[in-house]
C-alpha cells in the first residue's frame, strides 16, 4: 500500500473494496468472492499463493448465484460489418 504509481489509487481501491464486500454480501453474494490484496513486484510468491488460495476458495464455494442469471448474449456485434 502507498506505493501506487498514481499516489492514492490503491487506497481508493481499498475503500471501494471495503464498501463493496458488505454490500454484495447483503444482496446474497458471498463476500469471499471479492478479494483484493496489494502485493509489490517483489512479492511474486505471495501473489501466486494468494491467487491459488483464492481460486481454491472459489472452487469450494461452487458457482456464483449470479451464474444462472447472466445472459451470455452480451457481445455487441454492430461494429463488425463485413
Amino acid at each position: 500500500m502507498g506505493e501506487c504509481h498514481y499516489l492514492e489509487g490503491n487506497y481508493t481501491a481499498q475503500k471501494r473494496i471495503n464498501f463493496l464486500k458488505p454490500l454484495i454480501n447483503f444482496v446474497g453474494i458471498e463476500k469471499e468472492r471479492l478479494h483484493a490484496k496489494w502485493v509489490s513486484s517483489a512479492q511474486a510468491s505471495e501473489l501466486v499463493n494468494d491467487i491459488t488460495n483464492f481460486i481454491d476458495d472459489l472452487r469450494e464455494m461452487g458457482p456464483s448465484p449470479l451464474k444462472s442469471k447472466i445472459n451470455p448474449d452480451s457481445i455487441k456485434t454492430d461494429r463488425y460489418k463485413p
Binding site: H5, Y6, L7, E8, G9, T12
Partner: peptide
C-alpha cells in the same frame, strides 16, 4: 492529468 482514471471511476 496523469491518466490514473480515479475521476472517471
Amino acid at each position: 492529468c496523469k491518466g490514473c482514471g480515479c475521476c472517471a471511476a
